[in-house]
Simulated scan of single mutants.
Amino acid sequence: MFTNPDGNPYHPNVFTSRFQDLIAAGLPPVRLHDLRHGAASLANTKPPRPPPASYLPPPAQPARK
Rank of each mutant, 00 (worst) to 15 (best):
T3M: 12
N4V: 00
N4D: 03
P5H: 13
P5S: 15
D6F: 03
N8Q: 15
P9Y: 02
P9I: 00
Y10M: 07
Y10R: 09
Y10C: 09
H11C: 02
H11Y: 09
P12L: 02
V14F: 12
V14Q: 06
V14L: 06
F15Q: 06
F15E: 05
T16A: 12
R18I: 02
F19V: 01
F19H: 08
Q20G: 06
I23L: 15
A24I: 01
A24M: 04
A24D: 07
A25P: 01
P28W: 01
P28F: 03
P29K: 13
V30P: 05
V30A: 12
R31P: 02
R31E: 12
R31S: 14
R31L: 10
L32C: 04
H33Q: 10
H33N: 10
H33F: 05
D34R: 02
R36H: 09
G38H: 11
G38Q: 06
A39D: 03
A39R: 09
A40P: 03
S41L: 11
L42W: 11
A43N: 10
A43V: 02
N44K: 13
N44Q: 14
T45F: 03
T45I: 02
T45V: 03
T45Y: 04
K46R: 14
K46F: 14
K46Y: 13
P47L: 13
P47T: 02
P47S: 14
P48Q: 08
R49E: 14
R49Y: 07
P50D: 11
P50I: 00
P50Q: 02
P51Q: 04
P51I: 00
P52M: 05
P52W: 05
A53K: 15
A53S: 14
A53D: 09
S54N: 09
S54Q: 11
Y55Q: 15
L56F: 02
P57T: 02
A60G: 08
A60P: 12
A60M: 09
A60I: 01
P62G: 06
P62T: 00
P62A: 12
P62E: 04
A63K: 04
A63C: 04
K65G: 14
